Simulated assay, not measured.
Amino acid sequence: MSLAVTLLGTGSPLPDPNRAGPSTLISAGDEHYLVDAGRGVLMRMAAAGVGAPNLSAVLLTHLHSDHITDLNDVIAQLPFQRIKDTLGYHSSPAEAAQTAQRAGVGTLILTHYVPPFPPGGGAEWHDMAAAHFDGVIEVGDDLHRVEIPTETDSGD
């Protein structure tokens, strides 16, 4: 089984017709974890094929409005409520890479950039992270999906 990370929304409070509010779906088998609940999260989850009742938990990185705009809609759809505020800060690509390197993370996914990159952009963020991180680096827009092998996949 692999761990799948789907960037449901990579936007900011600035309106953009191509970017929903910050939200990420992490899935492994039948387990689905929603990180943040930005504008349009339920529509993006539907596009990714996962409904709110299928969530195992909802995690909030911090309480900025763009990360919780649609939280009430998500809660209204849940048969249970397991909500936890886990982090309270923003970090640069270099800081995120340093944290990921110290934690032994194999894949770093960078998102939530303001303003949006032009088509094919993101190399600057990738390069800033690469100076501090030895693993795989992904820079992605909405509905970007990353397959991350688990220890079971590698035979460990």
Rank of each mutant, 00 (worst) to 15 (best):
L108W: 13
S91N: 06
L87W: 06
P53L: 05
A52C: 05
D36L: 01
A76K: 13
H32G: 00
T61I: 12
S27P: 00
V35D: 00
E95N: 07
L34F: 02
Q77V: 03
L59M: 09
Q77C: 14
S65N: 09
N54C: 13
S56F: 03
R19Y: 06
D70P: 12
A37V: 01
G104R: 07
V58D: 10
P79F: 00
Y89C: 09
H32K: 03
L55E: 03
G29C: 00
A96H: 04
P79C: 02
T24D: 00
P15C: 03
A28T: 04
L63G: 14
L14T: 14
E31D: 01
H90E: 11
G104N: 07
V35L: 01
Q77H: 09
A28W: 02
S23H: 07
N18Q: 14
A48Y: 14
N54Y: 07
Q77E: 14
D36K: 00
G49D: 15
A96T: 04
T86H: 06
P93T: 06
H67M: 09
V105K: 09
D85F: 14
A103K: 13
S65A: 07
S27Y: 00
L78Y: 08
H90F: 10
N18K: 09
T86P: 09
P79G: 07
Q81V: 10
K84Q: 12
N18H: 13
L34T: 03
M43P: 02
D85C: 13
Y33C: 01
L60R: 13
P79W: 00
A103F: 08
V74G: 07
R19F: 02
A46E: 12
H32T: 04
R44M: 04
H32A: 02
G88Q: 11
S56L: 04
R102W: 03
H90T: 12
E31W: 02
A94T: 10
L14E: 15
A20L: 11
P22S: 07
A57F: 03
G51A: 14
D30N: 06
R19N: 08
P15R: 08
L55S: 05
L87D: 08
A103Q: 14
K84R: 13
G21W: 06
A97T: 08
A94R: 11
H67K: 10
I75P: 05
H90Q: 09
G49M: 13
S27G: 00
D66T: 10
L71P: 09
M45S: 09
I26P: 09
A94G: 07
V58W: 11
A100S: 11
D30T: 05
S92T: 14
V58M: 09
N54T: 15
S27W: 00
L60N: 15
G104H: 01
H62N: 15
A57Q: 10
N72W: 13
G51W: 08
V105Y: 04
L59I: 08
F80V: 11
G21Q: 04
L25M: 03
P79I: 01
